[in-house]
Structure formats: C-alpha cells, structure tokens
Amino acid sequence: MISPLTVIASVLPVYLLMIAGAVLRRTGVLPRECDVPVMQVVYRAMLPCYILDKILGSAVLKSGSVVVWSIFLGAGFIVAGILIGLAVGRLIGLERGTGMRTFALSAGCQNFGFTAAPVTEILWGSGALALMFVHNIGVETAMWSVGVMMMSGERGFSWRRLVNGPVIAVAIGLTLVALGLDDHVTGSVRKAMSMIGVGAFPVAILITGCSIMDLLGAERFNLRVILGSALVRLALVPLAMLCAAKLLPIQMTELKQVLVVQAAMPAGLTSILLARLYGGRPAVAVQVVIATTVVSLLTLPWIITWGSAWIGLKPLLP
C-alpha cells in the first residue's frame, strides 16, 4: 500500500518549487512584471501541448462513461465544496457582505491543476493524469459558472469564460481519441509538442510560489477564517470525495486515483482572481489559500495514504 513517505516524496518537489519561486521573488530575480507574460506562455502554449501529449493514446479516455463521470464529478464537487463552505462560513460567524461568499468559494475549490498534476503522475502514471485533465473541465465549468454567479450575484453564464488553451486542448484530444486518430500524431510533431509542454508545470508552480510570497503579509489573518478553511478544504470536502470514490459505482481505477489526489489539495489561487474580478473580498481568499497551502504540507500525505488504503488503491511504484 501507499506509505506517507511515498506521498511526501511525490509532493515534495512541488512545494520545493513553490519555495524556490518565493525566494526568487524575494530576492528580485523574478519581479512581478514577469508573471503575466510567463503565465500567458504557459496557458497559451506550454500547458495545451502538455495536455495533448498526455491525452493522445490514453486508453482510459476511450470509455465515454468514464469521461462523463470525470466531468460530472469535477463540477459536482466544486458545487458541494461551495455549499459546505457556506455552512461552515455561517458557523464561524461570517455573513453576506463580510466575506462569506468569498470564503465558501475559496475553501470549496481546490488547487486542481498545478499542484495536483505532478502528484498524480508520480503516484499513478500517465493514464490517471490524462483523466485528471478531463476531470478539470468539470471543475472549471463549475467555478466559472456557479462560482462567478455566487460571487457577483449574476444570473447568467457566458461560455466564453471557458475558452482557454487547456480546455481547447482537452476538447481536441478527446475528439482525436474518439475518432481513433490520436495514434497517428507521432514523429517530430509529437516530439516537439512534448518538448514545449514539459516545462509547463515547473514554470507555473514557480510563479505560484512568487504569487504566494506577494500575498504573505499583505493581509491581516483572521483565526476563524484560517480554522474554518482548514476544516472545509482539508477535512470535510476530502471526506466527501473519498466517500464518493469508495461508494459510487465507479468502475475505472484511474478516476478513483484522481479523486484521492484532488481530495488532498489545498485551496486554489483561482479563487483570489474571481474575488478580485467579481466583487468579492480578496483578503479572505488570500487567507484561505495561504492557510490551506501551509497546513496541507501536513495533511496531504495522510489524506492520500488513508484514502488509498480505504479505497484499495496501490501506487505505481513501491
């Protein structure tokens, strides 16, 4: 079975890259002016190439039911996480207008990509990683629809918000797999795609570390928000996701593997962006992200270890 040391070994490079990014920002090697152009390259070129490289030829994605389940659960658990966040927000005394909606969205939405992907690939391999990208379509759909509507008070939803490099890459990849054409993307084109994409996650995680360094000290921390976010993001939501992986009629092992890793993730930085864009309280989102990221250093190995043992999953490597 998976041991905590195996999980720590898989996640340690991710946190070390974050720390490296923080150090580079602190020392001025990576100034803030670099963030936007670098992340544009990541989202528009590197990450789409990486996603396509992992999806093409993936046997697990040939099952339509697995694809549908992945997208459905990705969206469903964001909605469930937000609802749990609203309940806990009320419990700790937050109200509408004082950060309750921002708290619910921030604590309910995990870091579904840049932290989760390296851990998924190390523990489970490329099959689970390819499925994780499909799962994340559901996550993004829920965040940019339900999340935005709750944060802004809007009742409508614009699909244009979902038109980005990663989503387009997943759509193209699934189409090629469904048509049986994915095995024909080989040779120099496939090699170039792999070379472009290989640095996507290291670079993005490095910039994430820079962003966290910018946020540290920017806001005064509220103990209720810190404890409440840890309860939602690192206890209640993981319990719900692990129960789903255990009890739902999911036949594909890779989907259970994805859910276990997603369950252990801290809050994602996207919630800070949504709070800034749609009238939320960025200060609350910042506290949730930083608090859950720090606490996840301790909780993540145990959630994955116990969750995998309960569900009956085995690691790719001993």
Rank of each mutant, 00 (worst) to 15 (best):
A240G: 08
S106N: 03
G197S: 13
V258F: 01
I71P: 02
I19P: 03
L274D: 07
S229Q: 03
G99V: 01
S145A: 14
L30N: 00
I272K: 00
L274G: 02
L316P: 04
G85H: 04
A263K: 02
E121V: 12
H184V: 14
S152C: 09
Q257I: 00
V177A: 05
W159D: 03
A142S: 13
W69R: 09
G147N: 09
T253S: 12
K191N: 13
Y43P: 04
A9N: 10
V237C: 04
A104V: 09
G99H: 10
V185G: 11
L216D: 05
Q110A: 15
V134Q: 00
P315H: 08
P31N: 11
I92N: 07
V29H: 07
L216F: 15
A200P: 00
T115Y: 04
L105D: 06
R160H: 14
L176P: 07
V295E: 05
L129P: 00
S194M: 12
L30G: 04
V198E: 12
A142C: 13
L179K: 14
V42C: 12
L131S: 05
N222R: 14
V148D: 01
F103T: 09
I250S: 10
A235M: 14
A116I: 02
P318V: 08
C109K: 03
N111P: 02
R25G: 08
W69V: 05
G89V: 01
L247A: 11
T175N: 07
Q287C: 06
S3M: 08
G199F: 08
T208Q: 13
V177I: 11
D53Y: 10
G209D: 03
Q40D: 10
Y50S: 09
C210F: 06
L56R: 05
Q262E: 14
G217I: 13
I226H: 03
A309Y: 03
G81C: 02
L17W: 06
V185Y: 06
V258T: 03
G165S: 13
V79T: 08
T98F: 06
G97C: 10
V284G: 08
G138Q: 00
L269R: 09
L259Q: 06
L298D: 11
G76N: 05
V60Q: 01
G138W: 01
G199D: 07
L316I: 12
A128V: 04
L47F: 12
R44P: 00
G85E: 03
I137F: 12
A178G: 09
I2L: 15
L30C: 09
A230R: 01
L248I: 10
F221Q: 15
C49Q: 12
L83A: 15
T120N: 12
L231C: 09
